[in-house]
C-alpha cells in the first residue's frame, strides 16, 4: 500500500512538471495558433541559467529569479523576432522556424556552457525526506515540486477565470478573430501569453535541474511528451492540460512500476521485463491514440 501511494506521488510529481510546460504550450497554441517547437528549448534555458547562477552564488533561491527571467526574456525575444512574423502563416512554416530555433539554442548553449552537463545540488532545506505515513518516506524536494505545481495551477485558474486578462485569454482561445475585432491590443496580449508560457517552462526547467541532468537536448526529450499532454487535454484548454498531465504522469509511472510484474505472472522473466519496458515506453502514445480515437479533439476541447 505504501509502495502504491509512493508511486502515486511519483506520478503526480511527473504530472505537475509536465503541466508547467503544457500550460504554456496549450495557451500559445490555443490563443495564437502557433506550434512552438522551441518551448522545450526555453525549458532548457531556464534550467541552464538558473543552475548556473545557483552554482556560482551557491544559493538555490537566487537561481529561481535567474532561471525565470532568462526563460521569460527568451520567450519575449522569440515572440518578438520570430513568432510574430508567423501568426498568419501556415502551421508548417511555424514548425520549420521553431525547429531552426531548437538548433540555434542547442548550439548556443553548447558554445556558452560546454558539452558537460552542469552540476546542481539540492537546497539544504529540501534535501531530506519526510515520513508522510508510517513507512512512507518521500523526498522533500519532490513534495515541493508537487506543491509549486499545484500552486501554479490554482494561480492560473484564478488568472484565467477571475481577471480581465483571463477573460481575453478565454475569448482568444475560443474565437481569435472576435477578440481582434473588438479592438483589443492583441499584440500585447500575445506577447504577454508567450512570456507567461516561457516563464512556466523556465520554472519547470529549473526545478527539474537537481533531479535530472542539466544538459543540451533536455528540452526535446520532454517536448514530445508535453505535446502529447496538450493534445490529450484538448488544445487550448489549461484545465485539460492539468488533468491530462496528471493522467499521463500517473499512467506512465504505474505502467513502469507494475506492468513488468504483471507480465512476469504470465511469461518467463527477462522477456517479460523487456516487453514490459517496451510497452510502457509506448504507454503514453497508446493512451493518446486511444483518447483521440474516442474523442478526436481531446478530453477538454473547447473549454479553457
Amino acid at each position: 500500500m505504501t509502495l502504491f501511494l509512493e508511486q502515486l506521488l511519483n506520478g503526480m510529481q511527473l504530472g505537475v512538471t509536465l503541466f508547467l510546460l503544457a500550460a504554456g504550450l496549450t495557451l500559445i497554441f490555443g490563443i495564437m495558433g502557433v506550434i512552438n517547437l522551441a518551448h522545450g528549448s526555453i525549458y532548457m534555458i531556464g534550467a541552464y541559467a538558473g543552475t548556473y547562477v545557483a552554482a556560482t552564488t551557491g544559493s538555490f533561491l537566487l537561481g529561481i529569479p535567474a532561471g525565470l527571467a532568462a526563460a521569460a526574456l527568451t520567450g519575449i525575444a522569440v515572440e518578438f523576432l520570430v513568432v510574430r512574423q508567423l501568426y498568419d502563416r501556415d502551421h508548417l512554416d511555424q514548425v520549420l522556424a521553431t525547429f531552426g530555433l531548437i538548433l540555434i539554442f542547442n548550439q548556443a548553449i553548447t558554445m556558452i556552457f560546454g558539452r558537460q552537463p552542469l552540476f546542481v545540488g539540492l537546497p539544504e532545506a529540501l534535501s531530506g525526506s519526510v515520513e508522510l505515513l508510517p513507512g512512507l518516506f518521500y523526498p522533500l524536494y519532490r513534495l515541493a515540486i508537487i506543491a509549486v505545481g499545484l500552486l501554479v495551477a490554482v494561480g492560473l485558474y484564478l488568472l484565467i477565470n477571475r481577471t480581465r486578462v483571463g477573460m481575453l485569454v478565454r475569448a482568444g482561445s475560443t474565437n481569435r478573430e472576435m477578440v481582434r475585432a473588438l479592438g483589443v491590443d492583441i499584440r500585447l496580449l500575445y506577447t504577454a501569453v508567450f512570456a507567461l508560457g516561457a516563464l512556466l517552462a523556465g520554472l519547470a526547467g529549473y526545478m527539474a535541474g537537481p533531479i535530472l541532468a542539466v544538459q543540451v537536448g533536455m528540452g526535446e526529450q520532454i517536448l514530445i511528451t508535453t505535446f502529447v499532454v496538450v493534445v490529450i487535454g484538448g488544445v487550448g484548454s489549461v484545465k485539460g492540460a492539468f488533468y491530462a498531465s496528471l493522467l499521463l504522469g500517473v499512467t506512465d509511472t504505474a505502467l513502469r512500476a507494475y506492468l513488468p510484474g504483471l507480465l512476469r505472472q504470465v511469461m518467463v522473466g527477462p522477456e517479460a521485463d523487456a516487453l514490459g519496458a517496451g510497452i510502457s515506453s509506448m504507454g503514453i502514445y497508446l493512451l493518446m491514440a486511444i483518447v483521440l480515437l474516442i474523442r478526436p479533439k481531446g478530453l477538454f476541447a473547447g473549454s479553457t
Binding site: I224, V231, A274, A277, A289, L292, P296, G298
Partner: peptide
Amino acid sequence: LRTGGVQFIMITLAFAQMLFFLFVS
C-alpha cells in the same frame, strides 16, 4: 484519419513512436 488538424499530427507521431519502441526492443 478519424481525427484531423493537430490531433492528426500527434496521432501519426504516436503510431510511429510505438513502432520505434517496438523495434528498439
